[in-house]
């Protein structure tokens, strides 16, 4: 589903991201794990096409994405990726239902008439059937993250990219959200790439990819996070 080969991206004058090799099978749930600053999120952004590599190959769902134009990347992203962010990133002016609908609005993967039934179904599956018309600022943090998960799955995407999805949640809520995310990803048979620095969270996924050392301080010949924490 995802393959990275010898991918480099310069992040600063002396800081470079470099991933020699990475591969995820379709339907696999993989944790990108490591300490802060190690390059987990950079790797996720490169896979999502939000950052472009300076060199190397990133292949997603059979397509090399590093050379796609901005327009092609927008379309590719809308059709194949779902995002779950640490800060939920719901759009404040819209209700829970509208936020999920927006996940479908920008891609052409399904007919318009299917949008609303699909959105309502997902909101029911995340236990928010009673809050479909609520605005994000009236939802609890756990509810907001559940809306974000519903939105990420709205298009039956092939790949869910989750960046520290439980980072803003208390342990109990965090566990509930992880249960839901893993359950829905299994039900929908989608590949999950989840960024986390928490070992307990990473251990709940099928596989853990250690990102330590992906971002290198080229002057010190050492992982950047080690310099940062020194």
């Amino acid at each position: 589903m995802v393959t990275i080969k010898d991918c480099r991206r310069r992040l600063g004058p002396d800081v470079t991201f470099h991933c020699e090799s990475f591969h995820v099978e379709p339907g696999e749930h993989v944790a990108l794990w490591g300490p802060s600053g190690c390059g987990k999120t950079t790797m996720l952004n490169l896979i999502a096409g939000l950052l472009r590599p300076d060199s190397g190959v990133i292949e997603v769902d059979g397509s090399e994405i590093q050379d796609l134009s901005e327009r092609q990347m927008d379309q590719f992203r809308g059709e194949r990726f779902g995002f779950v962010f640490q800060t939920f990133n719901l759009l404040a002016p819209f209700t829970a239902l509208q936020n999920v609908l927006l996940g479908m609005r920008f891609s052409d993967t399904r007919p318009t008439k299917e949008w609303k039934p699909r959105a309502l179904d997902l909101l029911q599956r995340v236990g928010l059937q009673h809050r479909v018309h609520s605005k994000p600022n009236t939802l609890s943090v756990g509810e907001q993250q559940r809306v974000a998960i519903a939105r990420a799955l709205a298009n039956k995407q092939k790949l869910i990219l989750a960046d520290e999805p439980t980072g803003s949640l208390d342990p109990k809520t965090s566990q509930g959200v992880m249960d839901l995310l893993l359950k829905l990803c299994s039900e929908e048979e989608v590949t999950l790439l989840l960024v986390t620095h928490e070992t307990e969270i990473a251990d709940r996924l099928e596989r853990r990819f250690d990102c330590s050392g992906l971002v290198m301080d080229t002057t010190a010949e050492a992982p950047a996070f080690e310099r940062n924490t020194a």
Binding site: A48, L50, R71, D74, G78, E79, L91, L102, F106, R151
Partner: peptide
């Protein structure tokens, strides 16, 4: 800007 970035991450094109 953040909202616009979210929309872009959802697949909105720059022209959208």
């Amino acid at each position: 800007r953040r909202d616009l970035a979210i929309m872009r991450s959802l697949g909105a094109s720059t022209m959208d």
